[in-house]
Write a protein that binds this DNA or RNA. Structure first.
Lengths: 342, 342
DNA sequence: CAGCGTCATGTAACCGATTGCAGTAATATG
DNA sequence: CATATTACTGCAATCGGTTACATGACGCTG
């Protein structure tokens, strides 16, 4: 138990006068080692404070027991909830988790991917950045049969499974709800990007309009980065419209909330003048007054599902290519911000 | 460039008819290798897509280039902001970051510590769980001279540096502000724990009362877990008090906000009947109406400082024992929830 | 008792880097 | 020209496990 030095299987073997091979096997609970010997070894290991050296093992086995996660940002409610879910599963399955953020930059994302690759993660979970326009930086993984899985912000790839919700359907229902509440001019605030989640939401919005014989009007689409500041700006844009809209569907709660605050300050009454629907069910949606109608979006569960899926594959489950997409349930939560016919 | 196999320094050495030792040195840019040889090696490495094997290196050098972080939870605004800061610094310094969460449980925290220890992190960043009552689980690190650093939720230890704000002073100023606004019966909502951040805030609260000749009344202290739900409960407790308070100082914005919502629903006017001050400057403090006065608490910066501090030590900077505590600046941000004399 | 299978253990190569020490050739010095 | 110095480069041990293959002991069968 002296200070600097670690106990190795060689120390154990020597002390017990057996070979390191037996010690190694015993510690893995290999059934080929006799119970008696195992017991001796476990006891001594405990006593001497043995801990296995992962590097030696990784070096030999060419596996790392580590999964990597690349996220657009860490400090958003949704993403941190997803991470919590990922961490929970990874940890309970004995996997380490290394995390890095792309800060919504495609370039940084490539760099993160390189780092993950060099660290030889066994598998990779990715949610794409706003401005990622190619996913070739994951080819090196696929070429080595390292599984890659997208969640939430996904792209099409026949070797990469995606875990997400049906964004189109969710947006369709959100918009339909607004229409049912009597809205006829509905603004849609979305991101300035072609990321799936936003194009799908836009598509759902259009679909709902069409099905209700409402015209699609490009001037009602506001594109920004969905940040809090962008919400204030969007409010200005809305107020500057020649004819005010009577409904707003925002692709993100955060932005919806700040937009509502700004509009309220200018005397707009919500939902009477303008009904609002957001997306994400961020806790802030329950704080804003009136409470924000939104799409409940299971972040924690998404993290869990993605991690579980990846790990079960790593442990020798079904090949990833079998499944292309895993859809999680989402739901519209109706609150006061959109209720005009109580 | 064939599918499965990685390129090693042996491949490079063989191809160039030189020894692996020279290749190894060249790749580290060791000045002892001639420029000409280096050039050849770098070019071939590039051409063959060589990437170094960290495990082999770690095994040999007994270092991992990885720092670990143990946090009470990942999915809170404050914590995810801190992580973002840590990740930023770690990544820019070429360190990997592995993360796990204690879920506010002391037991789970010990388990996380063991995992980190087994993964041989070079250094450890920790924010303690609510119910951690001993920090002996970090002894194994210290015994091996692996630096440990606490941030935010800290404990006293002569080998562990802490990075935090002056909680007492912040709470003192928050309370003083309430008193200056005419509050005389001030409730303090805090956590049910002896974690430093909460005891210090309580101490600051008491100090402000004393300096203003206000009596400390234990029945005005509400203890819970500071969650959103706890905020609703706290509102009930407040309304059940024989004499209503005229000010509330909450140790966390989240809880403050839900408490305010519940009180408003019961007809309490804020700040006229009851002035509110929170803690953290969570974005939600700008959404609640009236906007919440709070302590601005630099999470991102705290993460950066903690990580930078740890890494500079790992890179051979000053010994950690030299510094005991790093205090970050915090400030009271006054908003409408507490302004009674405009 | 020879022959065989079974069970438990040992031997030694291997994973891919790092590095102390030694060796050699080229250059400088006396 | 002999010797000292410098500048590179190579040899080989090492880090701590894993695992294919070999070995030895034992009991069982015919």
């Amino acid at each position: 138990m002296d200070k600097g030095k670690d106990v190795t299987i060689y120390d154990l073997a020597e002390k017990l006068n057996i070979s390191v091979a037996t010690v190694s096997r015993a510690l893995k609970d290999d059934p080929v080692v006799s119970k008696k010997t195992k017991k001796k070894i476990f006891e001594l290991a405990e006593e001497m404070g043995y801990r296995s050296n992962n590097f030696a093992r990784n070096l030999r086995t060419q596996r790392t027991n580590t999964i990597g996660a690349i996220l657009p940002r860490l400090n958003s409610y949704f993403m941190s909830t997803v991470i919590a879910g990922i961490e929970h599963v990874a940890n309970s399955q004995g996997y380490n988790l290394i995390i890095s953020q792309s800060s919504e930059s495609g370039e940084k994302e490539q760099q993160c991917a390189r780092t993950m690759f060099n660290n030889r993660v066994d598998g990779l979970l990715v949610s794409l950045a706003y401005d990622t326009d190619t996913i070739r930086h994951f080819d090196s993984f696929l070429k080595k049969d390292i599984p890659v899985l997208f969640f939430d912000r996904c792209a099409e790839h026949d070797q990469i499974t995606s875990v997400l919700i049906d964004n189109r359907k969710a947006a369709y229902e959100a918009t339909k709800h607004l229409i049912a509440q009597g809205c006829r001019r509905i603004v849609h605030i979305t991101a300035h990007t072609s990321r799936n989640v936003y194009t799908e939401r836009l598509a759902g919005y259009r679909q709902a309009l069409e099905e209700n014989q409402l015209p699609f009007d490009g001037s009602l689409i506001i594109r920004n980065n969905l940040s809090q500041e962008a919400g204030y700006e969007a409010a200005k844009d809305i107020l500057a419209m020649p004819r005010l809209p009577d409904g707003v569907f925002v692709a993100n709660d955060n932005c919806a909330v700040s937009c509502m605050l700004a509009l309220k300050k200018q005397g707009v009454s919500i939902p009477a003048d303008m009904a609002f629907v957001g997306f994400n069910n961020d806790p802030v949606s329950m704080v804003i007054e009136p409470n924000l109608t939104t799409i409940n979006y299971p972040g924690y569960e998404m993290g869990e599902v993605a991690a579980r899926y990846l790990i079960s594959h790593l442990m020798g489950g079904a090949p990833m290519t079998a499944t292309n997409t895993v859809l999680l349930r989402s739901e519209l939560i109706i609150r006061d911000s959109s209720l005009r016919n109580p």
